[in-house]
């Protein structure tokens, strides 16, 4: 029992649906994003293997740790970023209602695990001791406080309606009441926008605005460490898309693993396409504009979503509406 189960667990963590699968998916997601971005701009875009080629190139390059940087923190933060993003994926149901691991309250854990990469961007940038990195780090953390509230509200509202703090439980709840998930469409829109902030993409890419602060937190990073950071962002994109798919689009998980997996891919493709489209359409917002937007528009709308879910819960409890 021991050995076989440990081996099976290791296989799940490292290969499928763990690290290796996620990395492959992340690279595919980066390709889709870049290709779509290019096509939307009437360009040709990269070939399918470009993200992999970039990764290999970066892995092969020399990494330079600045003299002034805190060596330990500088090296450790990219690993933390990747680990956190991969770990978060274990709690998200992918092709069935049951995630790899699941316990009541895992939705909170996933949201916090997805916060860790941003914290590592801050720490990595701050300990680089370069002025651009430090400005980028400060911007990262300020932006975190702006988008995190709408994101949490938007994701917790459906959980409130489902009456469970477990993603697997939520998935099961909405799969049996598909009409109720239509109620959460506003939440989906807010979560998409907040995800843009989390991934630090246009229009919320002030923390790594190329024309202002070179590459923000990542200015001093090179070689393998930069590759890890970039991979972490890609994995975060996939995990974020999976989270949104599990919470807001919980359809078709009862058709068996193959169809379920195909549908899952279609769902995250849709989410990633939306992210690419938004990055095509907008100019970069200044940090103050971004924070104003999140607090004045996104957060109140997320509250509206929360209220809607609370009202729906009340009516269901009284037996008025049982889909």
């Amino acid at each position: 029992m021991h050995w076989s189960s440990i081996l099976w667990a290791l296989f799940q963590i490292l290969i499928f649906p763990g690290l290796l699968f996620l990395v492959a998916l992340a690279l595919a997601a980066e390709f889709v994003d870049r290709k779509l971005y290019a096509r939307l701009q009437n360009r040709l875009g990269p070939p399918w293997f470009q993200p992999l080629a970039d990764l290999i190139k970066l892995l092969a390059k020399q990494e330079v740790v600045p003299d002034l940087a805190d060596k330990f923190m500088f090296v450790v933060t990219p690993m933390f970023a990747l680990t956190a993003a991969v770990t978060a994926s274990f709690y998200i149901p992918i092709w069935s209602h049951q995630a790899l691991c699941s316990f009541p309250g895992d939705v909170i854990v996933v949201l916090y695990l997805l916060t860790i990469p941003t914290i590592t961007f801050f720490l990595g940038g701050w300990y680089s001791r370069s002025v651009y990195s430090m400005i980028g780090a400060a911007r990262s953390i300020m932006q975190l406080f702006a988008y995190e509230i709408p994101l949490f509200l938007a994701i917790l509202a459906p959980a409130l309606l489902a009456g469970t703090w477990s993603l697997s439980g939520m998935s099961l709840f909405y799969a049996h009441r598909p009409l109720l998930s239509l109620l959460n469409l506003l939440g989906l829109a807010i979560a998409l926008v907040a995800l843009l902030g989390k991934l630090e993409r246009v229009p919320f890419d002030a923390p790594e605005a190329e024309t202002e602060i070179v590459a923000g937190s990542f200015t001093e990073y090179s070689g393998r460490l930069l590759a890890l950071f970039r991979l972490a962002i890609d994995v975060e994109m996939v995990v974020g898309a999976s989270l949104l798919a599990a919470v807001f689009l919980p359809f078709g998980m009862d058709f068996g693993p193959v169809a379920g997996f195909g549908l899952y891919l279609a769902k995250i493709l849709a989410v990633i396409s939306m992210l690419s489209l938004m990055r095509t359409l907008f100019a970069r917002l200044r940090l103050d504009q971004m924070i104003n937007f999140c607090w004045q528009i996104a957060a109140p709308l997320a509250f509206v979503q929360l209220m809607a879910d609370l009202v729906a819960k009340g009516t269901i409890a009284r037996g008025v509406m049982i889909p």
Partner: peptide
């Protein structure tokens, strides 16, 4: 109008890329 270039951008999806494969 936020997203003013939406129509143009979507149209590009179905047009030939302007890139010349030099």
């Amino acid at each position: 109008r936020p997203g003013r270039m939406f129509h143009e951008v979507m149209r590009s999806m179905f047009r030939k890329a302007a890139t010349v494969r030099y």
